[in-house]
Design a protein around this nucleic acid. Structure first.
Lengths: 260, 260
DNA sequence: GAGTGGTCTAGACCACGAC
DNA sequence: TCGTGGTCTAGACCACTCT
């Protein structure tokens, strides 16, 4: 966590002297948020890094402190920034993972400490991207993807079967590395090996019948109803960088949603 | 929609002269939000009513405009207020209903215009509240509840089976009124007949096997997997005022959740 | 045109975290 | 003790909605 500040007044002001002048119809803090968002997504500050202090930024852009704070509030709301009193404003770190378990109640005899399930890689393969994947990842006709099949278990009990698809060459480091050292969570691995920060994901839930193979891995009867979670994960910069489908026992499904 | 303002400077200032002085550790706007929240929940302004203008409120409480706006922002965030530029600040109207359908994809041949399912009341009964319901609704040992069973259909096709429990005597008007005039949505009915505004609800999802009766109503095979939605609905003031369980075909389940 | 909320400014002091 | 973000003030002007 390095504070990437040399001489904020000069550097910041020179590189990005003004909120991009005439964006018609957009408020000043809106334009400022736009400018700062661009700088963050360009990687000027790495995840975990601190931005220059409010006063410095406000001076650099020639706006009042309150205006700058409104711009920062927009980015905090978008999940790009985190502010901590007395410490500073920081670029948010990516998701850690393990959140798929929130759709299930897998009774751990011990109690409700939510453990991370063990991961076992069943297969790893590189293949040509399907048309739908090309669109999702922005690949061309020759684009290729890496696919993984994983079985995840809690206390020797299989609970989740996963099919992961990630685009190449972005994830090339995963092709040759040894899976035994990967650990149970993929997102920190993506960051460590490929420099990809997962900032956001969208889960699409449905109930399907498990086919014979799926049921077998999960030790459920064939044709049993399964919860299928189709996830698309997005990097800080916006594009989709992982498509994942997870199956689990439908009768273990449990989820709470708030309506307002 | 009436603007309940007579002479805001006097009335408002006299009844609630100050942000409750010493709430230690709480910011001024926090105390102000607290005070305003209390007045809203007491019903001083009905849902849909407009609050006095910012300037008047700020003057009445003796705070700067910015401070008042921060307090209002808190209440907007809580879902109690809605602000509209050029019009004013209004107490939020309750939920309209129909939101249970968001968990399902029921193919309407026509397209994706989401219609409100027709409602047919299967039974209505008054009984002693169970212990769990007494706790939920804050009833005493003699407390009674009204129960409803409903079948909801889209284009003659049964899709949802519902069991509704509401506390008495709050919902007494429902006991004698004619269900044929109720219409398809309960929440507007609650507001119209019982003066209860539903502001918030919590849905708990799980998969269960449908028993013979349930499956029969939904025209599904017995033992078929069903999605069970257990909902608790809360009034503006906070207490739970409805407990509802809804069953539908698990294979029609579809839901999208965002992770950040 | 009158009244509303939305934006913006240029200051001040406070609470917290790190050194 | 110093730098950070958090709170608060007292103004100004703008954009929108109603009539």
């Amino acid at each position: 966590m390095t504070n990437a500040i040399a001489s904020p007044d000069e550097v910041t002001a020179r590189t990005h002297p003004l909120p991009p002048a005439a964006m018609p119809g957009l408020s000043r803090y809106g334009r400022l948020a736009h400018a700062l968002r661009a700088r963050i997504l360009e990687g000027e500050w790495a995840p975990g890094d601190g931005l220059p202090a409010e006063a410095a930024l406000a001076r650099a852009y020639g706006v009042a402190l309150g205006t700058l704070r409104q711009a920062l509030a927009v980015l905090v709301d978008e999940g790009l920034l985190v502010r901590e009193q007395g410490r500073g404003t920081f670029v948010r770190r990516g998701l850690e993972g393990a959140s798929l378990l929130r759709f299930f109640r897998f009774r751990q005899d011990g109690g409700d400490a939510l453990a991370v399930p063990r991961s076992r890689i069943l297969s790893r393969a590189v293949r040509r991207a399907k048309p739908q994947e090309r669109g999702l990842f922005g690949l061309d006709a020759e684009g290729r993807v890496l696919t993984l099949r994983r079985l995840r278990s809690l206390e020797q009990q299989p609970c989740l079967l996963e099919q992961v698809v990630v685009p190449l060459p972005l994830f090339a480091p995963l092709v040759d590395s040894d899976p035994s050292g990967w650990g149970p969570l993929l997102y920190p691995l993506y960051q460590r090996l490929c420099g990809v920060v997962v900032a956001r994901a969208q889960d699409h839930l449905a109930i399907t019948r498990l086919d014979a193979t799926q049921a077998d891995w999960l030790r459920l009867p064939a044709q049993a109803p399964g919860l299928r979670v189709q996830r698309q994960a997005f990097s800080l910069a916006g594009p989709c960088i992982e498509s994942r489908t997870t199956w689990g026992d439908a009768f273990a499904f449990e989820y709470t949603a708030e309506v307002r």
